[in-house]
Design a protein around this nucleic acid. Structure first.
Length: 859
RNA sequence: GCGGGCGUGAUGGAAUGGUAGACAUAGCAGACUUAAAAUCUGCGGGCCCCGGUGCCGUGCGGGUUCGAGUCCCGCCGCCCGCACCA
């Protein structure tokens, strides 16, 4: 009897599939198409177990669809631009391109061992000039269509390294390399006009039925449509040209609770006032020494600076309110100015208490709902009920005394407009997408700056604008910008000497259309109309929930923009029909500190466990263990799946990552269990191949019992795969293995059951399945054999056991024919000893019979 | 801070509002074996006047329901995102 030997089986079948071209995607108008896509990886150089989980899930879907007769597109590529390559260049002196392509080669080899159904003929990396050249063509088309523009925006500036920092590179307000305090600096940058699509991107979410609700909710909140009032507070003795402050508020119903007006440190008035006020200039400078990350701003202590100016309340010219510059007001949102209503906003209340400003409630809980309510002016917290709740207005000026916040806001807007105080507006939180990056390793923005002509787009025939190879990474900053000659170019318009743009594109641009490029990866335009029409949309997109907002929103925008420019059909403006967000694989993090107390991360395989705790295997240095977090290259808490593949085979790794944890949930990686998965596959192989040696005649009824169980398994496993319940499919297959091993059925039934089991396992453990299939005389490749179908007649049992509850607690059970009518079920339940005893001769108060499920008797 | 999610035995987890703990891992006991490995069988939430038609039990506290792990409200803990990490 042959033993299960993954090391010999797996390469054999991989070779067979490769030679047969089993997984090459072909347009076939006679079949339904199915495009399954997992978010493509950053080529860190090492496949980690999170990748294995992610790509195995997609592979299960792809293999299942292949078996159900679909023309499947399952491509793979590399999200290859980005910071890590530049960091490697600075740390090790290796060129980012060389480093990246080496990593790609290494990872591709690792991918190859997993037995995935990938069509490698469509592979590309976003750093390939062929890809980013097409991306530059898209940029030029977007520019033509008015979807791109330039404006000033703030960046994190490291004054020592003289370079722009990513938010990730700012730690506690300091640059990660220099340790210098980071400042904000304004640069002219390129923007995509995603805000033009705010309403469209919001309302179209309603049609995405196969997206997780949580992702749609996050996107809705991110886009953040709000209805409010824009109105002006007239300045008393303001500087010239500053007659009033325009504010935006979503709570105009609280206008009579206003106690101050706050403006952003970047507000034009704040900038004007700091010219004459050194203290304010210092305050603003301090505010600008903050990371551009919104999170940092929200967490920072709320500070204000009293400008000494006052404004008049729009309803009462005698009511003057102080004007503060406040560090928590964003210039990017609304008008960069607010009025503060401390009674109904905790942040404003904290601010008012800090600067001794009045607190004026405009509403309080409705009559009869006061409970232990304390007015904020009497020391209570800010009263901020949901806008849907009915409250009682103390200082209302519009609508009823008792009304919901929503009604009050609309009424207030109406009254204000009638009075000529402001106007109702709809706003969105979503900001335009700044795509400029001051870095080398990205897609060059294909424009030229000419003294005479201004900003001139590069000619399409000159694309791609290639990155230069000879670059210097000995200094921080943009290596492209300091290249001696690359910038020098003739103006595409007038031919005079001009300078290339040295900013490159955000890597989110690269990943915002790769799914479309996969449909025609070698086309000499961004897409090919026929291929796009055939393959789009992505039927199933799979990736991490960490991409729930930015990547997915940007891709939705890009698909619309590409449609406007003629690169995608109208049917593809929502590019992902179904989305699944798989959980992350987490792992402990191991850290030591360098001489400047900065963290140095270590791979789990470099850490050894001794009695005295975790230590570095190489030096014995003690290692600090930080609790599990998302596996990331930067934290180095990654596990090498190759070790498992080397030891047990790819099928074991695949089986293991699919079992146990539900795919949408995070899973903590532990080494234990791989052994068990491997044993199980060996058992499956043995039980399946032994079926051929079974006696021709089985025990009475055993064939029928086995086949009945087989059909139930087909049903359950299929449902599991189609609903991303891979762990339950695996569990069901474990159970069926036990059934088969204990069965007394005859040879034919057992071989049939074993072949079916192999088919059901084939999406998860494809090599093992092929081996069993061929051993048991299956026809052709199991990869393309038609998926088994469950016979509905075999799924139902003749008798069912119903639990009988008394007052909701299970007390006994009855076994009845499946179709027994409700009244008879009730009669039999009431006839049980337990129920009769509980009733004690009295009639039941109520009896609930749920056919096929349960009986509940209320006494 | 704001937005979103998650929380069930020692462990991973199962459960259209209907028998909580399927399936598996670790563990324990047994069979086979000179022995080990492999394999097979069984046990497997807690408590107790422990074999009973017994009590408790799905992070904590309330609520809705004939019935709640599941729905609602309020907490606690952990995780993700916050626009220049990808």
């Amino acid at each position: 009897m042959a033993r299960y030997d993954a090391a010999s089986i797996e390469p054999k079948w991989q070779e067979t599939w490769r030679e047969a071209g089993t997984f090459a995607a072909r347009r076939d108008e006679g079949r339904p198409k199915y495009y399954v896509l997992e978010m493509f990886p950053y080529p860190s150089g090492a496949l980690h177990i999170g990748h294995v989980r992610n790509y195995t899930m997609g592979d299960v879907i792809a293999r299942h669809r292949l078996a159900t007769g679909h023309a499947v597109l399952h491509p793979m590529g590399w999200d290859a631009f980005g910071l890590p390559a530049e960091n490697a260049a600075m740390e090790r002196g290796v060129h980012p391109g060389e480093w990246t392509y080496q990593n790609i080669a290494a990872m591709k080899e690792q991918f190859g061992r997993l037995g995935l159904t990938l069509d490698w003929s469509r592979e590309f990396a976003t750093c390939d000039p062929e890809y980013y050249g097409q991306q530059q063509a898209l940029f030029l088309d977007f520019l033509d269509a008015g979807l791109v523009y330039r404006k000033n925006a703030v960046v994190n500036w490291d004054p020592v390294d003289m370079t722009v920092l990513a938010n990730e590179q700012v730690e506690d307000g300091k640059g990660w390399r220099s340790g210098a305090t980071v400042e904000r600096r304004e640069l002219t940058q390129w923007f995509f006009k995603i805000s033009d699509f705010s309403e469209e991107l919001l309302s179209a979410l309603d049609g995405l039925d196969a997206w997780p609700d949580k992702v749609k909710t996050m996107q809705r909140n991110w886009i953040g449509r709000s209805r409010g009032l824009q109105c002006a507070f007239a300045l008393v003795d303001g500087p010239e040209g500053h007659a009033e402050i325009e504010v935006y508020t979503t709570r105009p119903d609280t206008l009579l609770g206003a106690s101050f007006v706050g403006i952003s440190p970047d507000h034009p008035l704040a900038r004007r006032l700091e010219e004459d006020d050194a203290d304010l200039a210092a305050f603003n400078a301090e505010c600008r020494k903050m990371s551009t990350a919104e999170e940092a701003m929200e967490k920072a202590e709320k500070n204000g600076y009293d400008t000494g100016l006052t404004v008049r309340h729009p309803f009462d010219p005698d009511w003057e309110l102080p004007v503060y510059v406040a560090n928590f007001i964003l210039m990017d949102y609304g008008t960069g100015a607010i009025f503060g209503c401390p009674a109904h906003d905790q942040r404003d209340l904290d601010f008012a208490r800090k600067y001794d400003l009045p607190v004026i409630s405009t509403y309080a809980p409705a009559m009869g709902e006061e409970g232990t309510f304390i007015l904020p002016e009497n020391g209570g917290p800010a009263y901020v009920p949901p806008k849907t709740e009915t409250v009682r207005y103390i200082k209302g000026f519009a609508g009823h005394e008792a009304q919901t916040g929503n009604d009050a806001v609309e009424a207030a807007i109406g009254v204000c407009q009638d009075k000529g105080v402001g106007r109702g507006v709809t706003r969105y939180r979503l900001r335009d997408w700044g795509l400029s990056r001051q870095r080398y390793w990205g897609c060059p923005i294909p424009v030229v700056h000419c003294d005479a002509c201004g900003v001139v787009p590069e000619k399409k025939e000159n694309l791609p604008v290639r990155l230069p190879e000879d670059v210097d990474f000995s200094k921080p900053g943009n290596a492209l910008d300091r290249h001696p000659t690359w910038r020098d170019v003739a103006c595409p318009a007038c031919g005079a000497p001009a300078k290339r743009e040295t900013d490159t594109m955000d890597t989110f641009v690269d990943s915002s259309w790769y799914f479309a490029r996969f449909t025609a990866p070698r086309a000499d335009a961004p897409t090919d109309a026929q291929d796009a029409a055939y393959w789009m949309n992505v039927d199933q997109y799979i990736g991490g929930v960490e991409h729930a907002i930015l990547h997915l929103l940007y891709s939705r925008f890009f698909a619309r923009a590409m449609h406007i420019c003629g690169h995608l059909p109208a049917s593809a403006v929502e590019p992902f029909d179904a989305l699944f967000t798989q959980g992350m694989v987490t792992h402990e993090i191991y850290v030591t500190r360098d001489e400047r107390d900065r963290p140095v991360y270590h791979l789990p395989k470099d850490v050894e466990w001794t009695e005295s705790g975790a230590r570095l295997g190489s030096t014995g240095e003690a290692v600090e263990v930080i609790p599990s977090a998302k596996m990331s290259k930067s934290k180095k808490n990654v596990v090498d799946p190759l070790e498992i593949i080397d030891r047990y085979g790819a099928d074991t790794a695949r089986w293991f990552v699919l079992s146990d944890s539900p795919p949408e949930r995070d899973v903590e990686w532990t080494a234990s269990g791989a052994e068990a998965a491997s044993k199980h596959l060996a058992r499956v192989f043995r039980i399946a191949t032994e079926a051929a040696d079974a006696p021709a005649e089985g025990a009475d009824g055993a064939d029928q019992a086995l086949l009945r169980e087989m059909h139930k398994t087909i049903h359950d496993v299929t449902v599991g795969i189609e609903s991303f319940g891979f762990n339950t499919s695996v569990a069901r297959l474990y159970a069926f293995t036990n059934t088969l091993s204990k069965s007394d059925a005859g040879r034919d039934a057992r071989m049939r059951a074993a072949r079916t089991m192999a088919q059901l396992m084939s999406p998860m453990t494809p090599h093992l399945a092929e081996e069993i299939w061929s051993t048991l005389g299956g026809e052709g490749l199991i990869a393309t054999a038609p998926w088994p179908e469950a016979d509905p007649a075999m799924l139902v049992d003749d008798e069912v056991t119903l639990p009988v509850q008394i007052n909701g607690k299970r007390r006994t059970e009855i076994t009845v024919p499946r179709d027994l009518d409700r009244a008879e079920v009730e009669r039999r339940a009431l006839d049980t000893h337990a129920v009769k005893k509980a009733l004690d001769g009295n009639p039941p108060k109520k009896t609930i019979v749920v056919p096929g499920r349960i009986v509940n008797v209320v006494v």
